[in-house]
Nucleic acid binder design. Structure first.
Length: 366
DNA sequence: AACACCGTCAACCGCCGCAGG
DNA sequence: TCCTGCGGCGGTTGACGGTGT
């Protein structure tokens, strides 16, 4: 039985023939598609209007890209899905020439399996506890969830949760501040060395600039995300989404798990672009290629081990549009004024073996 | 060769929100 | 306020081709 919209007529279903495609293309190019329900009649097709719409949008539209997804597209899908969940139409908007159906199929048939193989829950992007498919099979992670982990950073990490806040007051520069628990001064790792060399060029995107400020020149370094140049509420929201991303797990494509939707060009930016920029850093360009690659691989490996969950977040002093945002709330993109938010970051037991000093130093260096 | 199994993907189904009567 | 039609969306199905046994 056809859809109720066209149940009166005899309606063909199933795959479209080339002849039908031709009729539909001819119809749309000459008449447009003001009303899909009238298209079948106009085109001389024994199809439901919905079926015509779907065929056009998913297959016949001239601006479709076709072909397999590139690594870059895959990366965008994973990163945006981390934020938006199964909102395929929204995700597809970040991929010119791709349809929601295409993205959904690609996710279900390919990406989902890849994430699971990496030990990641495809729904939450968090590491699956006790996953036997964890991407790290060497190193200290004999059991990443082991509470008896002797790593001293484990104790350090247990001092969390950390609280940090966003103040988006229009009159004052506003920052997301996140106190760290570690000193950077004793960190002599190559990662730290590389990362703490100040990049003279600030982040070109003012909506999600982040930088390090070591206020009192002591151990209390802070990660700061600058909201002050946000030109609109929408920009603030995008920044918020980026901080929401803190809850996300890292992935190969987005090792730190940090990123932001850029409202200006509509695309997602992973902060891990910085890692690649880093590889072009002047301190690294003179090194032999192999050494650079090793160094980058090491950074990627370490960053993949970094993860923090945001367990709870709420606006504690909102304006007209007070509302709470909870984990997995699909209304994150809804319109609200962000004045002040408080986040609580909870430690994840399973990451206790991580050298958090390295992870923090990466974040703090930006 | 025959069959089972599996992955892919076009297409469908049911639901929702919205607009107009 | 209710009803109806429509576009849009996400979940699901099933045809089809490739691969393994």
């Amino acid at each position: 039985m056809g859809h109720h919209c066209c149940s009166k007529q005899k309606v063909k279903r199933g795959l479209w023939s080339p002849e039908e495609d031709e009729k539909l293309i001819k119809c749309i190019t000459t008449h447009g598609h003001g009303c899909w329900s009238s298209v079948p009649k106009l085109a001389g097709l024994q199809r439901c209007g919905k079926s015509c719409r779907l065929r056009w949008i998913n297959y016949l539209r001239p601006d479709l890209k076709r072909g397999s997804f590139s690594a870059q597209e895959e990366r965008v899908i994973i990163d945006v899905h981390r934020i938006l969940g199964n909102r395929w139409a929204q995700i597809a908007k970040h991929l010119p020439g791709r349809t929601d159906n295409e993205v959904k199929n690609f996710w279900n048939s390919c990406i989902k399996k890849k994430l699971i193989a990496q030990g990641l829950d495809p729904r939450t992007h968090n590491l699956i506890p006790n996953s036997h498919h964890h991407h790290l099979t060497n190193s200290s992670s004999t059991n990443a969830c082991n509470n008896d982990n002797p790593n001293p950073h484990h104790q350090l990490f247990q001092q969390l949760p950390l609280k940090f806040s966003i103040n988006n007051n229009n009159n004052n520069p506003s920052f997301l501040t996140m106190p760290t628990t570690t000193t950077l001064t004793h960190d002599t790792s190559p990662l730290h060395e590389a990362l703490t060399n100040q990049n003279p060029n600030p982040n070109p995107n003012p909506n999600w600039v982040s930088s390090v400020k070591d206020h009192d020149q002591t151990s209390q370094a802070q990660l700061m995300i600058d909201f002050s140049s946000s030109s609109s509420t929408r920009s603030s929201i995008d920044s918020t989404i980026s901080t929401n991303n803190v809850k996300s797990s890292s992935s190969m494509n987005n090792p730190s798990g940090f990123g932001a939707l850029d409202d200006q060009n509509g695309f997602y930016h992973s902060f891990d672009d910085d890692v690649h920029q880093l590889n072009r850093h002047e301190d690294l360009v003179d090194q032999p290629l192999q050494q650079q690659q090793q160094q980058q691989q090491m950074m990627m490996r370490e960053l993949m081990e970094f993860n923090i969950n945001v367990e709870e977040k709420n606006i504690i002093n909102g304006s007209d549009h007070d509302q709470c945002i909870h984990r997995d709330d699909s209304s994150l993109t809804s319109n609200f004024d962000l004045d002040f938010m408080e986040f609580t970051m909870m430690p994840c037991e399973m990451y206790s073996h991580i050298d958090h000093q390295l992870a923090w130093s990466y974040i703090n260096s930006r």
